[in-house]
Amino acid sequence: MSNWTTICKETDLTPDTGLCALLDGEQVAVFYSKKTGELYAVSNFDPIGEANVLSRGIIGSIGEAVVVASPLYKQHFDLKTGACLEEPEHTLKVYPVRLEAGEVQLQPA
């Protein structure tokens, strides 16, 4: 069953930055890393700062993990697992994301 939803075009992506998409009422932060060539999608809500801001964080790497840093209090979240590196009791939802015929698509988590 295919339940992929197109959220934007590939050309809407700015390398190494994030954007926020609305998927069935949920806010999803989507990132594109030029170096890894991959797309990542996690929930946009920062569980520590308690605001919808993660798509506006800076992405990078900590060790092997590709991460986003919260723009509020700078905790790092692993973009593949959703885990918070500094405060492991917090985890983000991770959404399946893909590039299909020049379109960025998401599936519910």
């Binding site: 890894t36 964080g57 800076i58 992405i59 990078g60 790497s61 900590i62 991460v67 840093a69």
Partner: peptide, 10 residues
């Protein structure tokens, strides 16, 4: 090395 981060990028 790596991808950079929220310290070195800004």
């Amino acid at each position: 090395k790596g991808l950079g981060c929220d310290v070195c990028k800004p």
